[in-house]
Design a protein around this nucleic acid. Structure first.
Length: 292
DNA sequence: TTGTGTTTTATTGCCTCC
DNA sequence: GGAGGCAATAAAACACAA
């Protein structure tokens, strides 16, 4: 007999965990040593031994009373079972019988071994899956933190740039003049809704296009029918937002903020009324004429 | 040697499938 | 209803530190 013999004793209507009681009744026999070698404890089998140790282990088991206690399978049995498990982790009845015969085990033992082996495999698989998921989570978390950091950095840049724009620290260099608007407030007077002009009449003409708080501030040459260049092509382009300006004959320095109209040279023929109206509608826009 | 934790073998009851 | 799988669990076997 073999350990499966326990099941023989326990078969039938034995209640769950009844093996505790049944085995308990057998325990004195086992523990007394009358059915097992008295010195068995000194012959402990290695946990997972190599095939080289088979002979030793077989000797070990040969000396035992075979059917009295739960025994571990020999490493050869385990090796063959493992090989069989690798081929197919489910056990068909025919294979179970063959394996049992080959290994000298009860078919029930083979079935139990496969059952327990599947449970171990499942546990390992869960651990692997957990590790993979954790690695994936850690990676995502790391990316998330990097993105949050970038976002904060960009946010502070936006704040910083906005502050610069609010204090009007824009410089325009070109046409022989340099104008820092915020430093020359007295030279500027509001001209009209959405427009600012310099209060002296220039000869040269210069268009300045200032962007404040995301709105375009435009400037263009003043009156006098002569054509005028706007922003010096060679000058800084930060003021050029692509919007257009209109020079005005009768309304000195006025401009409008008009989308989609291009005019690099003022020919003095533009309709100022339309332009002025457009400028007035641009409540958030200030035009700034600067000339020298 | 002994106490304790881990691994292996085995049982039990429940569930699903045929 | 029987066979087989699975989860939960018991208990023996084993490893190892103190």
């Amino acid at each position: 007999m073999n350990p499966a013999g326990n099941r023989f004793f326990l078969s039938g209507d034995a209640p769950r965990r009844s093996n505790m009681l049944v085995l308990g009744s057998l325990d004195p026999i086992f523990r007394s040593g009358s059915l097992m070698g008295m010195d068995e404890s000194s012959k402990r089998r290695p946990f997972f031994s190599s095939p080289d140790e088979l002979m030793i282990e077989e000797e070990y088991y040969d000396e035992q009373s075979p059917d009295q206690k739960k025994r571990r399978l020999t490493s050869e049995q385990v090796y063959l079972l493992e090989k069989s498990f690798e081929e197919e982790n489910k056990l068909e009845p025919e294979r179970k019988t063959q394996l049992a015969k080959k290994l000298g085990l009860q078919p029930r033992q083979v079935a139990v071994w496969f059952q327990n082996r599947r449970a171990r495999w499942k546990t390992k698989q869960l651990e692997k899956d957990y590790d993979l998921l954790k690695a994936s989570y850690d990676s995502l978390l790391s990316n998330y933190h990097a993105i949050v950091k970038d976002k904060e950095k960009l946010k502070s840049e936006v704040v910083s740039l906005t502050e610069k724009l609010q204090t009007k620290e824009w410089e325009r260099v070109g046409g022989g003049i340099e104008l820092v608007v915020s430093q020359k407030p007295d030279s500027l007077i509001p001209y009209a809704s959405g427009a600012v002009m310099v209060d002296d009449d220039p000869d040269g003409m210069l268009g300045v296009h200032v962007n404040v708080k995301g709105e375009d501030y435009l400037s263009s040459p003043g009156s006098g029918g002569g054509g005028s260049d706007v922003v010096d092509e060679d000058g800084p382009h930060i003021m050029d937002s692509g919007h257009s300006y209109f020079a005005v004959n009768d309304y000195h320095g006025c401009m409008g903020h008009v989308e989609g109209v291009q005019s690099e040279v003022d020919d003095g023929q533009d309709n100022f009324s339309e332009v002025f109206a457009a400028a007035e509608q641009q409540q958030n826009t200030l035009g700034l004429w600067v000339w020298s």
